[in-house]
Amino acid sequence: MNQGPGTIQLRQQGTSEWTIPGPWFSTFVALGEKMMEVAASKDTQNHRMLLVVPRRELVAPAIGFGISRHRFLSQRTYSVELTLDDLDDLPEGTQIRAVWPQRTRDAVFIGLDKKRNPPAILLEIDGVAHPPLGAKNIRFYRIGAPTPQGTKENKNLVSEKGTAQGIKEQFWSQVFPAAAFFSEGTHFERQMETEIIYPDLQAILGTNELTLRDAARFDYLSNDKHPHFVNVFEKSIKFQDLGSLEQDRMDMTDWVVLDGNTAVSRLSPSERLYGRRVLGIVDFANAVNQNPGFQAFLAEAGNLWLHKGQDGFDWTPPPGTYLWSWGAKNES
């Protein structure tokens, strides 16, 4: 994955044929990568970008894919593997992650039972003390990000303890929060199920079956299912009801993406997004909530400075697509 995304083919739900998407798709993938570059600068913390697209189908997942790709290539993660010695020094109450070959659990570290040989690990899972665990076949990680409790299904079988974590495992378990996407549930779910042929990634993951959900590493903000924490998705109608844990997780992401006219019109004015990097995607083809979307987004962006050009980074939008950005710094 050192080059661009290369030759990609897609197959949508309910269809039998693979189709090569036009350059527009890889251009939106590139936008996701550019967004991660922008996020590296502290000057851009309070930042709004309005992306107006001819049609929004597959735009947000492509951006999510670019974000995921950029994060993966960075090789950074908040997940640090712990040895028994490390656990010995770990303060009680620290959130850690226990990884069995097929499942992953987030837990609170209670301590080591050194009366046993080797020492057993004492954890609290879902607020309940777990029977002492031996270290065999389990790997422990310290997570530098609040992740929700609950069982996570490992997309791949984790390699045996004692072997170096493979690149495949790094992909599936990377904890490096990137973006929170808000959209309509059925619309977004359907797009995430789009199958993708992307030979580079398939070679790394050793599978031919890959969806945009996998490639973009989308998980759910309020119903976390996978060990990775890169992109999270939530229905925009749930936005106002997010609990503190979900809000904390959203706040850890570099970007909030409001996908579609309705999400933009409803969520742009939210105080929870003040001072955040927000990308709003408005769709020309859909008349519903189009002007309310523009109005709501521009009302908030109007508090910032409009930047000239494509925000200073080298991104040429696909035909019929427009991007404007606003920041706290006057660049004129």
Partner: peptide, 21 residues
């Protein structure tokens, strides 16, 4: 005009490209 197929999306973007050029 929702849930376009990839072929339809390709058509739309290629039309837009021609319209701009």
């Amino acid at each position: 005009m929702s849930h376009e197929s990839i072929a339809e999306l390709n058509l739309a973007y290629s039309r837009l490209e021609r319209q701009g050029r």
